[in-house]
Design a protein around this nucleic acid. Structure first.
Lengths: 216, 216
DNA sequence: ACAGAACCGTAACGTTCGTTACGGTAAATC
DNA sequence: GATTTACCGTAACGAACGTTACGGTTCTGT
């Protein structure tokens, strides 16, 4: 029996427990046990079961809790000229790379992938909805606005977003998930974000005023 | 105790057992048991342990066995003009998308991701070496040849490959790993491969003779 | 034909871990 | 102050599964 608790309806104590579960996920991965979580949270296993039903409910609540914490910053489409568009895309790419390369994101994605392998796609769909899909919902209005402003020349918004997705993430996410040791400094993230933006503009920019090369 | 057996030194019977283990991976994921494998392979568990040491050894041998089966077709760099380059890149992208979207590849990558979460990076590095890295070793000579022939204008081969990686795979791999139901028909794969190639040429092509748009 | 090895099928062992149950404590409610 | 509620810590139960052991069968070499 899995219990559904909306993230908004969580008490402070419950949030603290989920935070402990999150830490356990990061450090132990899918091998985390109800014991280790209860020890970390300094609570009894009985409480875990009363609040979250079973192990699956605890994992789901933890993923939902983490998802609810990530708030997409609002992007202002007020004055959208070419420099503003570039700045927005770069910021977006930086944020994205930063999140993706965080230990928390890696642990959550690994957990969701493992669950998807067992037919339990609930975690997978949650991560998908709050990861890739949330990014799409957040960026697509910007692309549409840029399209309307004559800055971009996009016929299919979804395809354009998926292209931006590929240009930003490249092989980073899969390598991180597979345990490849990558050191992504802030400078490197900024450089990758700038390059991805440059390439995206080169592909979809309506008019290219600069002679920038794809790579510097 | 994990036993190492080179894939070339496997008997036919052992290959059949690993094939059964592979099928078990695809159908049961990480939840596969020594029992299910032995039942599938019609062999005794004692044999599994004698041949592969332990569960981890069996999984590793299975991944290595699958990896040894995938032979990278040789790409002829003899006559490399622009149409030949485009055809090569498209073929490469098609093959890649086809492999990535296969049930076997999905199961193996999921297994490796799960293992990486437990600190066991052996499977992850194997999959990485035979996936992303093998693709790089295979494509980079082509890019270098195209560069030398004046067809492409690449300063950093590795970065260019990672860009191609992103343009081809986009969000497909992570969505598949997370359990998203995507139906990738041969036609769709061909279209995506063509588009990725077109975009790659648009970014790195030395001279653009055609007025093709990034998407059609 | 016969000895030995290899292998199959099944049973048994031990551990881990999810789940439940229970006694004890502290705070809240009346 | 008594009672209820919520929670902690620990113990105990039961199932799943990795691992090992064993008797029976087939294959191999001589």
């Amino acid at each position: 029996m899995t219990i559904h608790i909306e993230p908004e309806a969580l008490t402070d104590r419950q949030k603290a427990v989920l935070e402990a579960a999150l830490a356990a996920m990061v450090e132990e991965g899918d091998a985390l046990t109800m014991n280790s979580v209860s020890r970390r949270a300094a609570c009894s296993k009985e409480t875990l079961y009363k609040w979250f039903g079973d192990r699956d409910g605890l994992l789901t609540a933890t993923v939902r809790w983490q998802a609810s914490k990530v708030h997409a910053p609002v992007i202002d489409k007020a004055r959208l000229d070419r420099p503003a568009l570039i700045a927005t895309l770069e910021q977006f790419a930086r944020d994205w790379l930063t999140v993706i390369s965080s230990q928390t994101s890696i642990a959550l994605n690994r957990m969701a992938v493992s669950h998807a392998a067992s037919g339990k796609t609930s975690l997978g769909s949650i991560v998908l909805k709050n990861g890739r899909q949330a990014m799409g919902r957040r960026l697509e209005p910007v692309l549409e606005a840029a399209n309307a402003a004559g800055l971009l020349n996009i016929t299919d918004i979804d395809t354009a977003f998926r292209t931006f997705f590929g240009l930003v993430l490249r092989d980073v996410q899969i390598r991180l998930l597979l345990g490849d040791k990558i050191k992504l400094s802030a400078a490197k993230i900024a450089a990758e974000a700038a390059q991805a933006t440059q390439q995206f503009i080169a592909l979809y920019g309506a008019v290219n005023h600069s002679n920038t090369k794809p790579e510097g």
